[in-house]
Design a binder for these strands. Structure first.
Lengths: 224, 224
DNA sequence: AAAATGACGATTGTCGACAATTGACACTCT
DNA sequence: AGAGTGTCAATTGTCGACAATCGTCATTTT
């Protein structure tokens, strides 16, 4: 048994992709903004090649768009795209929930309870980014409890898009305390392992978020 | 109005990615096989750069895996991964079906009927690749009828993985005629726009396929 | 003979360079 | 002035090259 931990071999491409992703979901890079390869490569202190590969990764992940001979741009989300994303999320998360009802271990449930506590903890003090992060973490744990690795991958992609969209408009969580409370019906259904109740609770919870986000995006489009 | 059709500007990367994908799903490139950049670039008559970018695309799509300093390999599927893929497909397609029940136009339904006819048409004469293709086309049309573009993107990714897996083992559709017939309950539910019946029919249909594929993969793993 | 070591070929990681293309601006002509 | 045209800087597409690294196989050591 080795006493040494592995030396990090994360290649440049992955590192760059991560940094760009972070910049996008935190709103540091704004939708529609152009990603100039040369400029980025200079900032990262690398050549253009790794930047291009990283950008391609993000493209297939839907975070940036690519136009031949014109380059990469931070993806813009329309209201209808956001509607689609949330609609897909409903299907995905309800499915995950049903699986979780059958498969979740006691440890999974305990972790969820703990995460719910963290949600309450964010009320009043944490930044909005932290609130968003913890909220997503809760829902991700439900997907995790489904035991389906492929499902989580899709969910993570969706989550990234949602975060990018939400950060864009900022104002979603007007009341953190209330935000945490709306998760209670979900947690309760999970405790009871009641599939039908969980489906209902999740569907309602996500639909509310969908309505809010879509409405904001429609507002945004009207203004533009 | 222009009389000229657009000149194809598909860049090298996309072309290469398509060709590699095709080679994988048709079994021309076998799982676990190494993708040597230099060799591929010579075959395509390009340099390594576009090949690398294409490979990265396929990686995030899950068709190839990437190991730093070792290169790209055609993805191998385990039985449990296949189970996850089909399990996710169930969630996805049932959700799509429910949406389709509400939203499908008469034209959508007519197209589905036509596609069902094509399924019968493949019986007896078409190659197994054609049968698989037409089968997937039918299910894709259900997703299309959901009107959710994001959902289709995920479905297409899953379909690619399923095709890659199925081609690997080859023998799934032992009786094309019967394969076509098993789609009848689905079509019937769509005609009646009966959500519950559609969910049941789809779930059963896909679960049968899942059982067959997973069993074959488990067989394969035992042998190896 | 088995295990450890060393060297070599093959392959990837990254870079800088050059041609091709784009978009914007200035210019011309009517 | 307005439409069209030409020019130019900025940027992308692609390439070939070189260093770093990995796997393999022969060699040495115990």
């Amino acid at each position: 048994m080795s006493v040494f931990s592995e030396v990090s071999t994360t290649d440049l491409v992955t590192q760059i992709a991560r940094q760009i992703t972070e910049a996008i979901v935190t709103g540091h890079l704004k939708p529609g903004e152009r990603l100039t390869e040369l400029q980025l490569s200079r900032e990262f202190g690398t050549s253009r090649a790794p930047v291009r590969e990283a950008a391609r990764l993000l493209e297939s992940q839907g975070l940036v768009t690519f136009s031949p001979r014109r380059g990469f741009f931070v993806r813009t989300f329309s209201a209808s795209e956001m509607r689609d994303i949330y609609e897909l999320r409903i299907g995905l998360e309800l499915h995950a929930g049903c699986l979780a009802v059958e498969r979740a271990t006691e440890a999974d449930l305990a972790a969820l309870e703990k995460q719910l506590g963290r949600l309450y903890g964010t009320a009043g003090q944490a930044s909005i980014e932290t609130q968003i992060f913890e909220d997503f973490a809760f829902h991700r744990m439900i997907c995790k409890a489904s035991g389906n690795a492929r499902l989580i991958r899709v969910y993570d992609e969706l989550a990234t898009e949602m975060r990018a969209g939400i950060t864009l408009i900022g104002k979603i969580y007007d009341d953190p305390q209330r935000m945490a409370e709306t998760h209670e019906p979900i947690m309760e259904a999970l405790r009871k392992r009641d599939e039908e109740q969980l489906r209902g609770a999740l569907r309602y919870h996500i639909a509310v978020a969908q309505d809010a986000v879509v409405a904001l995006f429609e507002e945004l489009e009207k203004g533009a």
